[in-house]
Design a protein around this nucleic acid. Sequence first.
DNA 1: TCACGTCAAGCAGAT
DNA 2: ATCTGCTTGACGTGA
Length: 293
Amino acid sequence: MKIGYPCINNSLNCTSNRTFRLNNYSRNNLIEKVKLNLNCLKKILEFNVKNGILFFRIGSGLIPFASHGICSFNWLQYFNKEFKTIGNYIKKNDIRISMHPDQFVVLNSKNEKTVEKSIKEIDYHCRLLNVMNLKQEAKVQIHVGGVYGEKEKSIKRFIENYGKLDLNIKKRLVLENDHNSYSLEDCLIINKEIDIPVLFDVFHHQCFNNKERVFEAIRKAEKTWNKKDGKLMIDYSSQKKNKRKGVHTETIDVVSFKKFLEQINGVNCDIMLEIKDKEKSALKAVKLIENVK
DNA sequence: TCACGTCAAGCAGAT
DNA sequence: ATCTGCTTGACGTGA
């Protein structure tokens, strides 16, 4: 079991999400920012390895405007050596990688332009993982998308649009249950049709479910992962106290997390901690697991 | 150096 | 009608 955190490390003096305004787009600006981002990504991964954190979500902003029409620059080729170096480091240390395109990616949108842009954005994520030569177990997670007041039709549109995707994308994509539109059960229905692995988000499940208990839900999600896809990925968070439903907690509640681990006892998975204080919570979780062993 | 308005993009639910 | 939250703030102007 690996523990991870998403995108940002607050202990290091760098970010792998440097960007610029679209107005300021230029080849040089892009090169400058990507160089900084890749350097920082390497540092984050080294920090993680040193601390036993072997799961990491790479931020979507690593290559600013990568899927935007303005970006004609061949960053894949230009930074090929750097990508290979990072990819080798990831493989050497057996780090699990995920990516999560942002909320603007809606594969089942009713707007064709949105679908088109979404596919380009997903494609960017996949090309990034490919150029690092990462195995199929490195995943790109998305949600089903909008409901538009007619869920069945919207699910059908997801399945249809998925069918059009390139095999290189299908190999990477996994589907995550969300907190108010598509539950685990909905994702499983889609899985039956197109065999896409289902990433289980515990917190979303607490917000929105079909009454399955967590263990039962996780067992169901686990079955959707084939050997090549690697272990089941789980996103873990909990509710921020006294905030409205869906707001993530600032730091990990170790007692709850321990209970959760006991609940899922026996399930072989990797857990992403979607918690505001990032690596700090991940460090606590890693220590907890070491002590349990 | 710091405050703060703004930045490519979507959707649902709360206020 | 507008704001907030979502996997993640960072940029850039002006004081």
